[in-house]
Amino acid sequence: MNTAILSLRAYNFFYFSLLSIFISFLPVYLTYRGITPAQIGVLIGAGSFIGILSQPFWGMMSDRYKTIRRIILLTLGLSIAAGVLLFTSASFFALFLLVGAMYFFLLPTDPLTESLNYRIAELHGTSFGSIRTFGAVGYATASLFIGWTLDRLGMGQLVWLFVGYGVFAYACALVMQDAPASSKSLSWQELKQFFLYPQTQRFFLLVLIAATPHRTNDSFLGVYVQSLGGTTGDVGQAWFLAAVSEVAFFAISARLLARWSELRLIMLASALYAIRYVLCAIAPSAEWVVYLQLTQGVTFVLFYTATIQYLYKIIPEEWKATGQTVLAVLFFGISGIIGSLVGGWLFQQGGGAALYWAMGICSAAAFVYSLILARAGKAAGGLGL
């Protein structure tokens, strides 16, 4: 077995395990510290705003210095240090600063990781999904294990779990292969033309509309499950089932992308997102919401892999890492701000069910917009079916 692929798979396993602690259990930790849903929305919204600035910055550093691995080592190391402080803090001001630090260092590591996965997969003639699957497995197992552990040992042990996964992720990053640098020089004029191209703008708008309810779910799933009477272990189980379903669909994503156009897969994912969130809104108990997370694979994986593949088709070679971070700005930044601030307000005012109804409507809007783009693209021979 190729050692470069093995080390990258191991890194994916531990990095996405670490990410599961931050994404899945940060809202639960904040609730434990007495933070209200509206305040959680403010914290995550502010962090998402920081992500808008930090993700392009680190992506451009990667392109400028023609290395992904060394940038990951820097951002990951600083993330571990910030996480230790975050999960031992209680004051709102300290939490505000440290959540911001995590969005500056940890979240930009995600698009860098995805860019590295894609490039190494291309270099070694394997599929992106065969590598990314190990990240989904890590996310799944960590979610279940962490939820189970916190139920029994208490929320105070979260920091030690974070440190453990972080150390293993960093050790794997030290030995994994770097991505090959582009031989082309950077051209700001080409990048400007890329962003001014109507096809690009329509694509990124579609991503923003579809990603907003997804990021809202990331922020408030745990809070919603607990509001319905669920435990921390139930929250962990929900994220476990979501990640397990991702494993299955990452494994077959290459075959789906070979048979269907990217936009058609985004259309399908948006429609299924809408159904998923409406079912969560009318769920009679926390158990229903937990098991509905099994639809994460068919929604998130189809949507995310299709958007990455389409992006890599239209962006200049020398700007691929930057393009990946722009996608992440939409997915984790702008959509995160909208989802957390509006979602926190809706949760506070109308409860979790009202929030999930709104998410279902937003996903339905993404489906309608993707359908419009598909028809327009088919007629013009551009973006579309």
Score class of each variant (00 low, 15 high):
Ile40Phe: 08
Ala82Asn: 05
Gln55Trp: 02
Ala82Arg: 12
Leu26Arg: 11
Ala90Asn: 15
Leu78Ala: 01
Ile71His: 04
Ile44Lys: 03
Leu74Asp: 05
Thr75Asp: 04
Ile71Lys: 06
Ile23His: 02
Arg69Lys: 15
Ile23Ala: 04
Leu76Phe: 13
Gly47Asp: 04
Phe25Tyr: 15
Ser20Met: 13
Gly47Pro: 01
Ala82Cys: 07
Ser79Cys: 08
Val42Phe: 15
Tyr29Asp: 02
Leu26Tyr: 07
Ser89Cys: 09
Gln55Asn: 05
Leu19Cys: 05
Ala82Ser: 14
Leu18Asn: 06
Tyr65Asp: 00
Gly45Trp: 12
Tyr32Glu: 10
Ser20Glu: 01
Leu85Lys: 13
Phe87Ser: 11
Leu19Phe: 14
Ala81Asp: 03
Phe49Lys: 05
Phe25Thr: 02
Pro27Thr: 13
Tyr29Thr: 08
Leu19Tyr: 12
Gly51Arg: 09
Ser91His: 09
Tyr29Cys: 03
Ile80Arg: 10
Lys66Tyr: 08
Ser20Tyr: 13
Leu78Lys: 07
Leu19Asn: 06
Ala46Arg: 11
Phe16Ala: 01
Leu74Gln: 08
Thr36His: 05
Leu18Ser: 07
Gln55Ser: 03
Leu85Thr: 14
Gly41Pro: 13
Leu85Ser: 14
Pro56Phe: 10
Val84Leu: 13
Phe93Cys: 05
Leu85Pro: 02
Gly59Trp: 05
Phe49Cys: 09
Ala38Tyr: 10
Tyr15Leu: 11
Ser54Ala: 15
Gly51Trp: 02
Asp63Phe: 01
Phe93Pro: 06
Gly83Thr: 10
Pro37Asp: 02
Leu53Ser: 05
Leu78Thr: 10
Arg64Phe: 10
Ser54Asp: 01
Leu26Met: 15
Ala38Phe: 11
Gly34Gln: 07
Arg64Ser: 06
Phe49Val: 15
Gly77Ser: 10
Gly41Val: 03
Ser24Pro: 02
Gly34Asn: 07
Tyr15Ala: 04
Leu74Val: 14
Thr88Tyr: 11
Ile52Met: 15
Ser20Cys: 14
Ser62Glu: 06
Gln55Ala: 05
Leu74His: 09
Thr36Gly: 13
Ile23Arg: 08
Met61His: 03
Pro37His: 01
Gly41His: 07
Met61Ala: 03
Leu74Ala: 12
Ile23Val: 14
Phe16Thr: 00
Ser24Val: 09
Trp58Ile: 01
Ile72Ala: 01
Arg33Ser: 06
Thr88Phe: 11
Thr88Ile: 13
Thr88Glu: 15
Ser24His: 10
Ser54His: 02
Gln55Glu: 08
Tyr65Trp: 15
Ala82Val: 15
Leu18Asp: 00
Val84Lys: 11
Leu43Asn: 08
Val42Asp: 13
Ile44Leu: 15
Phe87Ala: 11
Gly45Phe: 12
Thr36Leu: 12
Leu76Ser: 04
Ala38Asn: 10
Leu73His: 08
Ala81Phe: 14
Thr75Pro: 05
Phe16Asp: 00
Ile72Cys: 01
Phe57His: 00
Ile80Cys: 03
Pro27Cys: 13
Leu19Glu: 00
Ser91Cys: 04
Leu30Lys: 04
Arg70Thr: 00
Ala90Pro: 11
Ser17Asp: 08
Phe87Val: 09
Gly41Thr: 03
Met61Ser: 00
Ile35Tyr: 05
Ala90Asp: 14
